[in-house]
Structure formats: structure tokens, C-alpha cells
């Protein structure tokens, strides 16, 4: 149903609206949420299912990864003052911490990116706004993930 609705946005009455009668009725208010021909068709993919599941699983993993990360970086062994180029170089000499940071980077960026995607979907009102916000988000996510991965793998402790 509701495929026969035409938009009459220009006809919304303002203050001066007295004088409507059966012969000149007030303009019809179109339901903004009717399912029309322009409503996207069903996609029949499991993307949202996997996205939902990913959020739960990555959340559990991130809880452990980030908590230990913060503990090591900010609390243990002299706290935040110990962090310097040498400290980072020392940690990334070990493949264990390289993997840890890589996993944390990817999970955190995808988790946060997907979370922001759902927030944009929920709150952006116009299709154009939604599209551009998501483009911005995807660009930032891809850029950060690639840059971080590049740095972790090509880190040179002897750089000057």
C-alpha cells in the first residue's frame, strides 16, 4: 500500500489558513514514513547479524585488551612518565606486543566505527546527511587502521 503518495511539501498552510471549506480543503499531510516505491528493498544478507555479533564479541575482547593496555601504560612500573620512544621501541621489539596492539587497533576501530555507523543510522534525518557522515566515518576508520598497521609493521627503532 501507500505507493500512491505524492509529496506536497509546498502546500503546508501557514498562519493565514482560514477559509478552508469542503470545496477548497486543506492540503493533505503526507505521512513522512510511509513505505513508498523509494523505500529500499530487502537485502537478504546477514550483514546486520554479523555486525551485531561482532560488537558483542569484540566488546568482550576489547575489555581485556584495553584494560591491560591501560594498566601497563599508565599504572604499573612508574606510570605514564616512563612512556617515551625507547619504551615503545622496546615493547614493539616483541611480536607479542605487536600482535596485541594490532588486534587492539583493528578491534577498537571496527567496534567504534560500527557503533558510530549505527548512531548515524539512528540519528541522521536526511539521506544525504547520513551518506556524507558515513563516508567521513569510513574514510577516517580506513585511514587510521591502515596508518596504525603500517606503523606497527614498519616501525624502525633506529630511526633518526
Amino acid at each position: 500500500m501507500a505507493t500512491d503518495t505524492e509529496t506536497t511539501g509546498a502546500g503546508i498552510p501557514t498562519d493565514d489558513t482560514a477559509g478552508y471549506s469542503p470545496d477548497s480543503p486543506a492540503p493533505v499531510i503526507e505521512p513522512p514514513r510511509a513505505r513508498t516505491a523509494r523505500t529500499p528493498k530487502s537485502t537478504r544478507t546477514n550483514f546486520e547479524l554479523y555486525g551485531w555479533l561482532f560488537m558483542r564479541l569484540s566488546g568482550i575482547l576489547l575489555f581485556v585488551l584495553v584494560l591491560y593496555h591501560l594498566l601497563i601504560q599508565l599504572v604499573l612500573d612508574g606510570g605514564v612518565t616512563k612512556i617515551g620512544f625507547a619504551f615503545v621501541a622496546g615493547r614493539w621489539a616483541s611480536p607479542f606486543w605487536q600482535t596485541w596492539d594490532l588486534v587492539m587497533l583493528w578491534l577498537a576501530m571496527l567496534h567504534g566505527g560500527n557503533g558510530l555507523r549505527t548512531i548515524i543510522n539512528d540519528y541522521a534525518e536526511r539521506d544525504n546527511t547520513r551518506m556524507w557522515l558515513k563516508m567521513l566515518l569510513y574514510t577516517a576508520t580506513v585511514f587510521t587502521v591502515l596508518l596504525g598497521t603500517l606503523v606497527i609493521f614498519t616501525f624502525d627503532p633506529d630511526i633518526r
Binding site: P40, S42, T43, R44, N46, F47, E48, L49, G51, W52, T118, N121, D122
Partner: peptide, 11 residues
């Protein structure tokens, strides 16, 4: 299958 879609239960 219908509720698995973009505007289904996952929202």
C-alpha cells in the same frame, strides 16, 4: 529472514 534485514531486530 524478514526480521534479519537492515530494519529488522538488529536495530
Amino acid at each position: 529472514e524478514i526480521l534479519n534485514d537492515k530494519d529488522g531486530v538488529w536495530r
